[in-house]
């Protein structure tokens, strides 16, 4: 392959572009195979299903009915509202927490190694059944939280049973599991060249100024990455609602995907569930596109940085 690359002066620009493109596609090959083999067809099928009324054994084409039905479905709107609220709360909180802790922990030392592992622990247990009962217990009537509040003379509540609070406890749970974002920030901070700090120190910049002037711009691609991924992931939040609150009380934790799951697997409305999924995809795509558009203003890649200096 590489012999093709050995440039002869006669090689035209067009030919080189073609060769380059072919090489690019060779690199892409595994993904393209996966896309065609395992991803594309389920996507197409789910889109087709969204235009039908479908159970396990019968499928009737109904056109856009499912999409129209959403407009008058109050639970759909409720779920969208709950999900949006969840995204807007959990994403910034989790990222801020993760970045903050990563800044504290990125130096190599024994104690930091210990802390890092400790802070990563909650992310390891994910959304298992053990976490569900534990969370219910902590925020239950005679749980830890209420006994803390009691010390300040505040009357305890069954927090997960409160329509006004249940969602916040699920937000708290994912913020508690900030480990993955922390890891990504740590890896990003490692790529910040040390000489830049040294230069700034000589200029007499304090820690806050160094953070804002150097660290933030340098890890801005990683912040963008975390932001995009957390946003997409949070819009699809499912497990917490599924194992801890079952969407209740009063649908206050009925995340969109939880509603989709309920429709698809509990109510045999695969068609409608698919339609909502595609609607959710559109919502996520729009939000992601907006983030990307604004990112041009605040994300700097290494090359731009160097150029700017």
């Amino acid at each position: 392959m590489e012999s093709i690359q050995t440039k002869k002066p006669t090689t035209t620009a067009a030919k080189r572009r073609f060769v380059n493109a072919s090489i690019a596609y060779i690199f892409l090959l595994p993904w393209l195979i996966g896309l065609l083999g395992f991803t594309m067809w389920p996507f197409i099928q789910s889109f087709y299903l969204s235009l039908t009324q479908s159970t396990l054994h019968s499928t009737t084409f109904v056109g856009l009915d499912n999409y129209l039905r959403m407009f008058s479905d109050e639970r759909f709107w409720k779920s969208l509202q709950v999900t949006t609220k969840y995204v807007m709360l959990s994403v910034p909180l989790k990222l801020a927490m993760a970045l903050f802790v990563a800044m504290l922990l990125y130096k190599a030392s024994i104690s930091m190694t210990f802390y890092r592992t400790l802070f990563y622990l909650p992310s390891l247990i994910g959304g298992s059944i053990a976490v569900a009962v534990m969370w219910r217990k902590i925020f239950g009537l005679d749980g830890l939280w209420n006994s803390l509040l009691g010390k300040f003379g505040i009357q305890g509540k069954e927090w997960l049973g409160q329509p006004d609070y249940a969602l916040y406890l699920l937000v708290l749970l994912v913020v508690w599991q900030f480990g993955s974002s922390m890891v990504i920030f740590l890896a990003g901070l490692k790529n910040v060249p040390g000489d830049m700090y040294e230069a700034a120190m000589i200029d007499g910049a304090g820690p806050v100024k160094r953070f804002i002037k150097i660290t933030l711009p340098l890890i801005s691609p990683i912040i963008l990455f975390n932001l995009i991924l957390q946003t997409i992931g949070s819009f699809q939040v499912f497990t917490q609602g599924y194992v801890i609150t079952k969407g209740g009380p009063m649908d206050e934790t009925l995340f969109s995907v939880l509603y989709i799951y309920e429709l698809a697997f509990k109510q045999q409305q695969m068609g409608y569930a698919s339609a909502i999924s595609w609607m959710l995809l559109v919502v996520i795509a729009i939000v992601t596109a907006v983030v990307f558009l604004t990112s041009k203003r605040w994300v700097f890649y290494e090359n731009d940085m160097k150029g700017g200096h």
């Binding site: 239950g140 509540k157 069954e158 997960l160 009380p249």
Partner: peptide, 9 residues
């Protein structure tokens, strides 16, 4: 009350 009943499993 409903908040307590809701978390009873």
């Amino acid at each position: 009350p409903p908040d307590i009943s809701a978390t009873s499993d």
